[in-house]
Nucleic acid binder design. Sequence first.
DNA 1: CTGAAAGCGCTTACAG
DNA 2: CTGAAAGCGCTTACAG
Lengths: 348, 348
Amino acid sequence: MKSEDIARMAGVSRSTVSRVINNYSNVPDETRRKVMKVIEKYHYSPNSSARALAGKKTDTIGLFIVSIAEKGSSTRVYQNNYFSPFIEAVIDTANERGVYVLVHSIFSVRDYAKIKQAFIEKRMDAGIIVGTEKDIGVMAEVASMGYPLVIIDYSPEDILRLVGKGRISVINSMDDKGTREIIKYLLDLGHKDIGILAGRDNTYSGRVRYKAYKEMLAENGIEPRIEWDLKGEFIKKIAEQAVIDLIKTGNLPTVLFCCNDDMAISAMDVLSRENIKVPDDISIVGFDDIMPASLVKPALTTVRVPIYDIAKKAVELVLEMIEDTARNISTYTLETRLVIRDSCKKHG
Amino acid sequence: MKSEDIARMAGVSRSTVSRVINNYSNVPDETRRKVMKVIEKYHYSPNSSARALAGKKTDTIGLFIVSIAEKGSSTRVYQNNYFSPFIEAVIDTANERGVYVLVHSIFSVRDYAKIKQAFIEKRMDAGIIVGTEKDIGVMAEVASMGYPLVIIDYSPEDILRLVGKGRISVINSMDDKGTREIIKYLLDLGHKDIGILAGRDNTYSGRVRYKAYKEMLAENGIEPRIEWDLKGEFIKKIAEQAVIDLIKTGNLPTVLFCCNDDMAISAMDVLSRENIKVPDDISIVGFDDIMPASLVKPALTTVRVPIYDIAKKAVELVLEMIEDTARNISTYTLETRLVIRDSCKKHG
DNA sequence: CTGAAAGCGCTTACAG
DNA sequence: CTGAAAGCGCTTACAG
């Protein structure tokens, strides 16, 4: 079934069929009804490739999930608890607005080229990228080609440096404020020996959370201890090893600030296996408030990142940018919120 | 940049450029190299719409996630712990093979039409459907149009009844065997008062697990008790309410067989709030072995469903079916495995 | 081995 | 208001 068939059966030309499908204003109601009747009767829907080729939008957005495992290891990071709800929220929001979503995994630096390729092949009108590392040339290229891009968790300054002008929006959460809030909560609880299980330095949130932690210590006259400065890279396995190594030293802080919940939960797992009680022997806090955070025992005190709102905002922005061809770079930063549960206790 | 540009710069015709891109055998190495050089220099990649319109595949598969909330409620079921890893595994497997994935949510019976529409619009070469309810006419329609379909968790008999012939594969897990295994494990532990928190009857796995449970009781001379036959519908909220109601009766079974882990974890949550200890006061088992199952305390004893393998198999099948135009219906049933953890204790 | 040409199914100036 | 025609960027018989 093609528009020509519809045209014939409705007694009009393909042009007219196209006009009613695309809601042209200069089609009399009578004609419109006549054509719609045939369209509905046969459940006709225009070939998307033909439409796209003729200059229409694809009504598809790309969602690129970057999860680069360590050193080119090809281990797939299944069940990343941050990405999952994000993916679902993007899909749901887009689908609600009648837009299709092409989801793509990026597992290596080479894979970044896929983003550019998908644009060149005209498979989508715009893209959302989550989990990007810094200094990715492809993003600048894509932006310079004028394709709309929403990037989640990226330094606003770096974006400006990387791409002079482009249709780019960046969405972050208030990682600085969130970190300060939770560290203050720990200080108020009487903790001074505050260790950190840091995220990826290559990641904006990883850097911001780390920096805010360091600043809070300094502002409160606490000397940071190198042996409590653990590198977890936002990767469960690495976080686990770091905690195992820490335990071996026999010298624990009174609380460990984990830069995301996945690492916090891994840490709790390791501690539990070593019979170190949370929060009695050591307090633990995380960041993100992913679903399992409220499920583990003790329930994890953490900072809620509005993953759903970020996803929704990303879709809204990307759809706006598709309509608006002005080349602007805009930044949004969504609120975080301290969520106090059971994984910390008063100290001293 | 289009094929004509490449042709000009390589000193050949568009036909030849097309031939090298599509790996025709009758292109001399010399010519091929010459063309490839220009293609690589400009990072040329053919317009996917034009290719599709000219008769090539779209190299895209559709993944439809059906999660119909109760009675047309529009509540989005975020973070369904079964779907998340499934989606990720499908995307990863497909991307590894150079295939794009269009992911779509189905939230209402009306939404099922989206599957047909996406095929009619020629947005994809084949589709994978997970979470379907029974008796969905759209699936039969799509199959009768000859589009390849892989359906996860569906009755093989119903498929045959619904669609006489089509390019359809069904993938299930061994829910019957798995249920029998875990119920036997409970019987061996000495339990006789075995309640069930059942899944959706509209779902194949929901029915099979329920039936196997009933049969196991009967085969072991245990009279089923209506007050321990709870309906959870595979939906957390409903499961929670069912458990709350059960607790109110003051008459608990010694173990509750929850037809999936999401409901089991919800049940544990409710019990914990009511200060009923698992496994001391009541044992709990689940089904699926989703990631949080090993994280909750006590860790959940359950039946592992090979979600990753199912996803991978689905992609492999769907890609095979795209190449093979023979209309066959095939069924695959993957192994489950009992995973014993800490949520059950010996009885009597 | 390779180019010219037709065709895929749309949309949209253009002309009336 | 509406149709004929050109054009979107490919692929692939066809002819040589």
